[in-house]
Amino acid sequence: MIDKRDQLEKSLTDDADRPTVAELKAFGVVLGKTLFSGSVNELFYAASRRHIQITLCTSDTRLKQVPWEYIVWPDVNEGPHARRTFARSVPVSNGEERKAKSISNSLIAVLVIGADVLGRERIPWNETKENLERIIGARMQGLSTARITMELVEGATRKTVRDALEQKPYDIVHFIGHGRPDGIFLRGEGQQRGVVLPTDAFSKMISDAEPALVILSACDTALIKDVQPLGTIAETLVRSGVPAVVANQLPISVSSIADFTGALYRSLLTDGNIDVAVNKGRIALVKEMEGLRSAPIEWGIPVLYRRPGCSQLFTP
């Protein structure tokens, strides 16, 4: 299963042949049979007409490397299922649930951090910003929608991000840029070249601000290797106190990030459930790539890590 994950990554980065729709579904069925076997599988199907939230919790590094997000079942089409969500639960020493914030009675504050750095593939920041503003602007219309503010830190450096987080509390922190398993890229002070903000420093900066959700629209922020005994950036953030983190376990294009996060925001700001919102984002990616001969691998790239009992971040 890990070898299959490596093949998927190769098809995204080296222009190798992508798996067909049938091949990706066959892999998803294997994942399903691995997690749900025997009487457990029978129980699952007995309950499958209802909405099912599946959470996987493991401390085994090899099991973490498996791309479980591609799980499907023989009775459904390829791709994510509308009524079956999937998340990774991070074991934490302090398992207290965080009370969900009311969408209708409170202001939802979003901080968007953009870091387009030299030496890395250009991120169309303006287009991405306009897309987010359009989504959030649409949510501000009507009588029963959440009241939202969105503030932007462009060309982000360590200092500008820290200053923004210290000025006011945010419910959602959304980073758009480049990442790697051990940190994210920000601009160096007074320059456009990127410098890595290590995972521990980034986690401390974010956890002190106490957001309900962190979205890392950057490659490899959910990628785990054998040399990472403590896990991914996303896992580290959850352990430090962030209820939920959305990151990426493989390289992903900016256009896919826009489609995914657009659907995620729309769902989250309506229903408040992060498991459901991530699933809506995955479904949106599949719809955007309908009709292609090769499989839409992108839908399984985003990964949701969260604390136990923290799927409902906001209440309608």
Results as ranks from 00 to 15, higher is better:
residue 97 E to C: 01
residue 25 K to N: 11
residue 176 I to P: 00
residue 259 D to F: 04
residue 27 F to Y: 08
residue 264 L to Y: 05
residue 78 E to C: 00
residue 195 V to C: 05
residue 269 L to M: 14
residue 87 A to I: 00
residue 210 E to N: 07
residue 36 F to D: 03
residue 3 D to Q: 08
residue 211 P to W: 00
residue 314 F to K: 05
residue 201 A to V: 10
residue 258 A to C: 13
residue 1 M to C: 08
residue 139 R to S: 08
residue 248 N to R: 07
residue 222 A to L: 05
residue 183 G to C: 09
residue 302 P to W: 05
residue 231 G to T: 02
residue 268 L to F: 00
residue 33 K to R: 14
residue 196 V to N: 12
residue 230 L to D: 15
residue 149 T to W: 06
residue 51 H to G: 05
residue 298 E to G: 02
residue 253 S to P: 00
residue 16 A to S: 15
residue 166 E to F: 00
residue 152 L to N: 08
residue 182 D to Q: 13
residue 271 D to Q: 05
residue 94 N to V: 06
residue 156 A to N: 11
residue 265 Y to I: 07
residue 275 D to P: 01
residue 158 R to V: 10
residue 209 A to E: 12
residue 23 E to A: 04
residue 291 G to H: 07
residue 83 R to V: 10
residue 261 T to E: 11
residue 73 W to P: 00
residue 106 S to L: 08
residue 204 K to T: 11
residue 297 I to A: 01
residue 310 C to Q: 07
residue 273 N to R: 02
residue 16 A to F: 09
residue 44 F to K: 06
residue 117 V to D: 01
residue 288 E to L: 05
residue 191 Q to D: 14
residue 133 E to Q: 14
residue 43 L to A: 14
residue 68 W to S: 06
residue 255 S to W: 06
residue 280 K to I: 05
residue 231 G to D: 07
residue 254 V to G: 07
residue 155 G to L: 04
residue 26 A to R: 11
residue 42 E to G: 02
residue 16 A to K: 15
residue 210 E to G: 00
residue 261 T to F: 01
residue 4 K to R: 07
residue 6 D to K: 09
residue 251 P to F: 09
residue 19 P to K: 09
residue 197 L to I: 09
residue 110 V to I: 14
residue 67 P to S: 10
residue 67 P to W: 08
residue 255 S to G: 12
residue 151 E to R: 10
residue 122 R to P: 06
residue 103 I to Q: 03
residue 280 K to Y: 04
residue 243 P to N: 13
residue 34 T to E: 15
residue 128 T to E: 14
residue 298 E to Y: 03
residue 217 S to G: 13
residue 95 G to P: 06
residue 168 K to G: 10
residue 253 S to R: 12
residue 5 R to L: 06
residue 8 L to H: 01
residue 56 L to H: 09
residue 299 W to Q: 01
residue 201 A to G: 03
residue 24 L to V: 13
residue 118 L to Q: 13
residue 262 G to A: 08
residue 111 L to H: 07
residue 98 R to M: 03
residue 261 T to K: 08
residue 313 L to M: 10
residue 178 H to Q: 13
residue 295 A to C: 12
